[in-house]
Design a protein around this nucleic acid. Structure first.
Lengths: 245, 245
DNA sequence: GTGAATTCTGCACGCCGTATAGAAAACGAG
DNA sequence: CTCGTTTTCTATACGGCGTGCAGAATTCAC
């Protein structure tokens, strides 16, 4: 067994693995999470159903990886949108984060549901994914930058680190040492605020479809930023996201 | 065919229908939405799988009815919590609504996911359910009561009725004639704010489990109420919800 | 070419939603 | 009590699903 051979085999293996994931993502976009079936993927790829088991031990394992990949791609977009706003405009950066998240979610509703919906809850069962950490830390950083401007009313309910789950608190504390726990708590609330309207909209709870729903979301982001004591120079315009990745 | 007989038969039919639903809800609570299978229900009830088709044309039809039932029971709870707060304490009523919603969601996570998750999005496909109307109108009423106190900043983005989907706007306008469209927009945002943290928490995105996460949510509700220019006398305490209905 | 490691196929099992045909049961009328 | 009708249920079948397992096919170093 040559080392050269090992590499070649590993390459092939990686390519097949990637192809499985790509096919799965395509099926996801076309028909929702239920459409991701190992047999359908295999059929699409022209191989037998059981062959997939050489690459993923289980359907749930595949879903876990997909969630992580998709989640990572969202964060790429969201962080890019944030970085497109000057670093000293914290309010604008926060708004950009939220707007980019929504833009992506509307372009990839099934992906959004995959990350934030039942599947993740069932399949991941509370394990803090790497991408989730990124989201958590990223938002906390933004809120930390706003923290000096936060009106006193926000800080009223003092938080202790013990208020939060051990794992998530540890992650954030490691990434941002010396952080006030109140910042983390506020960051989680900010996250919830960004997430709420998007979740309702993507799952069809804001009426069949909300005309001009971006207006609503922009108002929410503006209000959010102001509640942090900031005034963004202008609400950033986040371009439409292309579907898939 | 006696009329008397017809009634008796209708009664039996209703009882079986109800039993199917109850069994489905039990399975839902035990194993999530995927555990609701017609065959499992039939097995549980000691009848053949196809027999269920005499009562529900399709699995999706059953799910649709379940969503409506569960949604209605949530609204019963939420409205009761609201009415437990004096009518002149609008801030308290709004907070009570949100707190009761969260309490129920934590006690019935699978039910929450059924109503607000993928299933509803797939199965209902944007049709405005009766229960959703109730939620919409109820929240809009509360926000309408707060509207005079709303700080100017909130009203800045003026809304037109045409901003909203025709069906939902029509429902609200019919229930509350002469309403300022800005109230409806704000109500939707309030809904999103209540929904966001709950959705994240129920689906396991706030860390494996957030210790004392009620603290976080209470802070959010307090901030929400204040952002409406209100100051609740005291954040109401909403008792824990018993699971199932 | 030969032998070992890897990858894939074929088949089986039990689950699912759904359709259809026919048995079983309920019931009013005679 | 029996007949015919209406309602409800069972039996069976089809295709699809996730998942294991035995063995064929392929790949590669020697």
């Amino acid at each position: 067994m040559d080392e050269h051979t090992q590499r070649r085999r590993a390459r092939l293996r990686a390519r097949t693995t990637a192809e499985i994931k790509e096919t799965a993502l395509r099926l996801l976009a076309e028909g929702g999470p239920d459409a991701i079936s190992l047999r359908a993927i295999a059929r699409e790829m022209g191989m037998s159903g059981s062959a997939v088991y050489g690459y993923f031990a289980t359907r749930d394992a595949l879903l876990r990886e997909l969630i992580n990949d998709v989640y990572a791609s969202v964060l790429d977009r969201v962080e890019a949108a944030r970085d497109a706003v000057p670093a000293d405009d914290t309010g604008g950066r926060i708004a950009a984060w939220g707007l980019a998240l929504r833009e992506w979610a509307l372009a990839n509703p099934t992906g959004f549901r995959l990350i934030y919906g039942d599947v993740a809850a069932t399949v991941q069962a509370g394990s803090f994914s790497a991408a989730a950490k990124r989201a958590c830390v990223g938002l906390t950083e933004l809120v930390a930058a706003a923290w000096p401007h936060v009106r006193d009313g926000q800080a009223e309910h003092a938080h202790e680190w013990s208020d939060f789950a051990a794992t998530s608190a540890a992650v954030v504390q490691e990434a941002l040492p010396g952080l006030d726990p109140g910042v983390f708590g506020l960051a989680l609330r900010v996250w919830g605020r960004m997430h709420g309207l998007i979740s309702l909209e993507v799952n069809g709870h804001l009426g069949p479809q909300l005309e001009r729903s971006d207006k609503l979301y922009r108002a929410e982001m503006l209000d959010l930023v102001r509640s942090l004591g900031l005034s963004p120079r202008a609400l950033p315009v986040v371009g439409p996201t292309s579907a898939e990745r």
